[in-house]
């Protein structure tokens, strides 16, 4: 697979703080890559560096094999959908979509056709004469999308595309974006702080923290084989223990991790029991409950117990016995 964007040892500082710290990343052709991290981790800055809205202090950015470091945004073959959508409030929907095409010198019938095509692609062909303030949030998002896609960019950059949408609209839009990407066959780079969104949509996820990339991998790999404890914490519940204190210690040092759903809990001891303890608290989640168990050695263990297991629900104070396969344990760097 060839890389459509290559970010080579890029750093960007704003005054005393380093937003992007020596990041190297290859973005492959036709992939759906998510940049995931908490707010302030540098993911949006990285996106803006790709778009050319910021210039790196050091390092280089290649797009389609060309060194684009220093190239202004208007000369780059990528387009960005902003978090606020940044629709031009004084232009109609059609004029918004036509704006980028006009900059390329497209006019007349060709322009009309391209605008129509782009609006049809997001099912907004009937709203071309409206102004942005006459649209719903979901419609505005699709105009922003159409405005970018009309330019037929090599790469589409999306900054928190779902942030301004209602929850129910979010899931539908996720599916729409994935379908769109499959149909157009272009590269999507999405910035998000929502790990479930990243897992659901992306082919690969780059986890960022404090300006650095912690790990780039497909969602399953991130979940099952996180590179370190910080990545593991990002994706769902997890038990993280100091290796020295861990039951069934597989490694002498570092951190040991195990997902709560891999632990089996019962009221009777078995030959494979790893440790025993007392239920301290139960959080009912619907399809499952998270039980917090205090072991005899003083460790707190989270255990996910499915609600349909038949047995009466666990209650605080009960004596329980825990077991898990050795393969479920992961040794991690801090």
């Amino acid at each position: 697979m060839t890389s459509v964007i290559r970010i080579a040892a890029v750093s960007k500082r704003f005054g005393p703080s380093t937003a992007v710290d020596d990041v190297t990343l290859d973005i492959r052709e036709n992939e759906f890559l998510a940049l995931l991290g908490a707010s302030g981790c540098g993911k949006t800055t990285l996106l803006r560096l790709i778009a050319g809205l910021e210039q790196p202090d050091s390092g280089a950015i290649f797009i389609g094999g060309d060194n684009m470091t220093g190239t202004p945004p208007y000369a780059r073959p990528v387009n960005m959908m902003f978090q606020s959508y940044a629709l031009f409030p004084h232009m109609t929907v059609a004029d918004n979509v036509a704006f980028g095409l006009k900059q390329d010198g497209i006019s007349g019938a060709a322009l009309t056709a391209r605008v129509k095509e782009a609006l049809e692609g997001v099912e907004l062909e009937t709203l071309g004469t409206r102004k942005p303030d006459q649209l719903s949030g979901g419609q505005r998002q699709r105009v922003a999308l159409a405005r970018c896609l009309a330019k037929r960019p090599k790469v589409l950059l999306l900054d928190e595309p779902m942030a301004a949408l209602d929850k129910h609209l979010r899931e539908r839009t996720q599916l729409e974006l994935m379908a769109l990407r499959a149909r157009l066959g272009i590269t999507f780079v999405v910035v998000t702080h929502d790990q479930s969104e990243a897992m659901a949509m992306a082919d690969r996820v780059a986890v960022m923290e404090e300006g650095r990339i912690l790990q780039v991998a497909p969602p399953r790999e991130l979940y099952e084989r996180p590179a370190n404890a910080r990545v593991a914490r990002f994706f769902g519940d997890i038990n993280l223990w100091d290796a020295a204190a861990a039951p069934r210690r597989p490694h002498p040092a570092g951190i040991v991790a195990i997902r709560p759903e891999r632990i089996h809990m019962s009221r009777t001891p078995g030959s494979d029991t790893v440790c025993e303890g007392t239920v301290a608290d139960v959080a009912y989640l619907g399809t499952a409950s998270t039980c917090f168990v205090t072991t005899t050695t003083g460790l707190t263990v989270r255990v996910l117990v499915r609600s349909d297991e038949g047995a009466p629900p666990f209650t605080p104070g009960e004596r329980v016995y825990l077991t898990w396969p050795a393969s479920a344990m992961m040794a991690l760097d801090p």
Binding site: A51, G52, L53, P72, P73, Y74, A75, R76, N79, M80, F82, Q83, S84, A86, L87, F88, P89, H90, F99, G100, Q103, D104, R147, C148, K151
Partner: peptide, 29 residues
């Protein structure tokens, strides 16, 4: 006025002069 609106215009291929003429100026009207 959101900076992002001017940035979006640049991102869509407008040079600084065009951004000013087509985006900034009309919004300043």
């Amino acid at each position: 006025m959101e900076r992002e609106i001017e940035e979006a215009a640049a991102d869509l291929g407008a040079r600084p002069g065009a951004v000013f003429l087509h985006i900034t100026l009309p919004m300043l009207k």
